[in-house]
Nucleic acid binder design. Sequence first.
DNA 1: GGCAGTTGATGCAAGCACGA
DNA 2: TCGTGCTTGCATCAACTGCC
Length: 451
Amino acid sequence: MKSQYEALEAVKQAGFPVNPNIMLCRDISEVIEYCRRWEEKRNSLDYEIDGMVVKVNEIEKQKILGFTGKSPKWAISYKFRAETAKTKLTGITVQVGRTGALTPVAELEPVKIAGTTVKRATLHNEEYLEKKDVRGGDFVFVEKAGDIIPEVTGVSLPDRRKGLKKFKMPDKCPVCGEKVFKYEDEAIRRCINIKCPAIVEGSIFHFGSRDAMDIEGLGNALVKQLVSSGIAADIGGLYELDVFKIANLERMGVKSAEKLIENISKSREKDLSNLIYALGIRNVGKQTAEVLADEFGDIEKIVSADEKRLAEIDDIGPIAAKNIKDFFALPETKQILEKLRGAGVNMKQKKKKAKDARFKGLVFVFTGELEKYTRGEAQNIVKSMGGKTSSSAGKNTTYVVAGENPGSKLEKAKKAGIKVVDEKEFLGMIGESRGGKNAESKKKNKEDTLF
DNA sequence: GGCAGTTGATGCAAGCACGA
DNA sequence: TCGTGCTTGCATCAACTGCC
């Protein structure tokens, strides 16, 4: 077998439960062994009455054995080399993100890779385009990095027709039509029109995202409608919405509108760090927002801090400091803050510093899927115990916690000699080696299921 | 009931800020 | 100057919700 997908297909063809994201075993012999044992267990569920064999419905069997649509979480995962496919690049479109960044995207003739159909893939920026020399009409090689993200890895030059022109990035924003800028030290072009619908939509969507103000129900499609209909011109406008306005939008009703209003209302109580992150300041992500909130404790103090004071803070350099200062100096920012203040949005830090300091000085990186916690929850636990988390493994990383189906971080960690622990060990470290209710039931399920 | 939108989850690459 | 790590942007999927 050449790929993980082929192996999974073979297992599925044989009628066994698999999750397309997870290869169950280390190699094919283990897959076969797994299937054999599953078959035995499955057959054992049938029973006899008066000498007649009663076959239990397959779906019931899967429920009884704990396979409700997913593979067993505890199964060992294994990755095959990424599968490559050749397909036609029908065109290159340009997207505008919330920061105004123009990103070229490859539009592809749909092609099946690793069990899913790939239609688009990012081309990052014009330098990347230049390097790969990708042109509309080319046949390109596509693979899925980490079996998840589609990537154009190269062009099939023998298939190139004559006369295909190089793609040129537009000088004007494809959304608002304003002139775009490319700063000398940056690889990307940006639309700097703060009224550009793409930027407005992006910033409202970002404001409501989970790590920001966590407004459930504020999805992409709804935000588009809010902006295009003029109901919300900026993030401050969210707090002026009412049920009637929302319920009249496409695919919205009174029930959804009421829920959304309730969720927007709840967001007023979010912590200062959430608000700072939600504002979408350049170079200020979740981590930096937390640093700022911890340092100042009040948005007013951040607004009035000068660049020098900001740059004195750990993890904030002169560029981030300038961006922060510039952002709060904008009249539009002042207006938005005024609206938010008027709407009763919390602007002070409520979180207290961690009392439990058992992870003080330790840096954790998570890869793969954990059984008991989401990654966000696990990161919060580490922070509550005085530790730090990071999205990439480096020399400062103390532990890499590897869950199911880990990514490249695991390999990187092993090479760098970083200590790798599994979920069980991590739970032991946080004093939950026996696990909670959820973990108990899952554990039981696992034990009852097969081996 | 069908359909569309949202949520919540995953990982990778590139760019770039920061600090040693 | 360079290594490290944060930020951003991207695609996909299953499960769920609620409108039509």
